[in-house]
């Protein structure tokens, strides 16, 4: 009996415009951990990682714990192996992760995201919207970002980021 073939959300090749590259990231293991009321500290101890404060990413041992909402975080990397006083769900297949990296990344995001991105730095993340789509925005550094949105919306997300990049590039070409 043949095994089922896994498909990426998009399978798009990277796109580079104005020195800025949009890529579809390979699917990672994502585990949503939502501690039961009052159990956040216990969960953190069991995980061996600090539970991230709002807007923070905690890195440890090759795994990152990304704050993803009120009392919920996404563990990116190996799934927890210990029992947690938390709701634990596998979200690996629920999200598509795009990366936007380059000098025009912030300018493109200014067309997609309502956040103030003036002084963002590594270790930050945001729950917000990518236009009308849900978004987890992870800051790698000031001009490198990962964008997680619903997998079913991957085509629209790609299209809208591409569209923003094209417009930014057309403007950049005027002064180049």
């Amino acid at each position: 009996m043949p095994d089922l073939i896994a498909k990426p959300a998009l399978g798009h090749a990277p796109l580079t415009l104005a020195g800025t590259t949009l890529t579809e990231e390979p699917q990672a293991r994502i585990t949503a951990i939502a501690p039961f009321p009052g159990q956040t500290d216990a969960v953190a101890r069991a995980l061996g990682m600090a539970f991230p404060a709002p807007g923070q990413v905690v890195e440890s041992g090759g795994r990152s714990l990304v704050w993803a909402g009120r009392d919920i975080a996404f563990l990116i990397g190996d799934a927890p192996t210990v029992a947690l006083a938390a709701s634990v769900t596998d979200q690996s297949d629920a999200w598509v992760t795009l990366a936007l990296r380059g000098p025009q990344a912030v300018a493109a995001l200014a067309r997609l995201v309502s956040l103030d991105l003036r002084r963002v730095q590594a270790g930050q993340c945001f729950r917000t919207g990518l236009n009308h789509m849900p978004l987890v925005l992870i800051v790698e550094d000031a001009d490198r970002f990962r964008l997680m949105t619903f997998r079913s919306m991957a085509q629209t997300a790609w299209h809208e980021v591409q569209d923003a990049l094209e417009k930014v590039a057309a403007r950049a070409a005027l002064t180049a």
Partner: peptide
């Protein structure tokens, strides 16, 4: 209180 100042459209 969790996310900081955000535009009305997120709510």
């Amino acid at each position: 209180p969790f996310c900081g100042p955000r535009d009305r459209r997120e709510f």
